[in-house]
Write a protein that binds this DNA or RNA. Structure first.
Lengths: 92, 92
DNA sequence: CAAAGTACTTTGTCTTGCAAAGTATATCTT
DNA sequence: AAGATATACTTTGCAAGACAAAGTACTTTG
């Protein structure tokens, strides 16, 4: 079956953006996905817990800045997920 | 975004099977999906509520037999879903 | 005719997904 | 300079989802 962590509307798109960007700030991610802060925060925690992403805490001047990176396991899982989708589409 | 009713492990596969078969008994569907009766029943109810599937109640001899059909709206939505997945894959 | 099987559905429970509210600090306004 | 507003998130609360276990209504079998 599909990776349940990735087979979800917000997270599949989120990971897709990460693959394309490698490092993206929280705010930019939030805007791309058109989700609320809280929603994004909880999705990121879930992905972080499984080492799909890496959360880097920095500062921009004096304000906190969270940068999201894709982690090796995330990249591998996403690749596998895409392969699974391809297979699924071929069969349909 | 992806149709939330279809972007779920059990239901995407379920609909895929329905597209291929058009009419399939509850039991066969259950075995194909490797889910419990209760789980399948609730997924079907959800799909029926949105007119994605049609549930036909018949008898096989004296035993009840539930046959699941794909409904027009289900077919259209699934087609759209597959197109969305294709687009998603192309971008990745 | 009692026990076991068949074909489901309903109920209960744990997990998600989400927005609203909260936290902490920074910047603007008057 | 104090209060108001903004920024950048995280935590909390709750409604909806996913699933298995238990329930329902028979039928078949020993």
């Amino acid at each position: 079956m599909f990776d349940p962590l990735l087979h979800q509307t917000v997270r599949s798109k989120l990971m897709s953006i990460l693959i394309a960007n490698d490092a993206i700030p929280f705010k930019a991610l939030k805007e791309s996905l058109a989700v609320t802060d809280g929603n994004l925060s909880s999705h990121l925690s879930k992905l972080e817990k499984e080492s799909y992403v890496l959360i880097e805490k920095t500062f921009e001047g004096k304000r906190p800045k969270t940068i999201v990176h894709i982690a090796p396991k995330g990249r591998e899982s996403f690749d596998r997920y895409i392969e699974a989708l391809k297979q699924f589409i071929e069969d349909n």
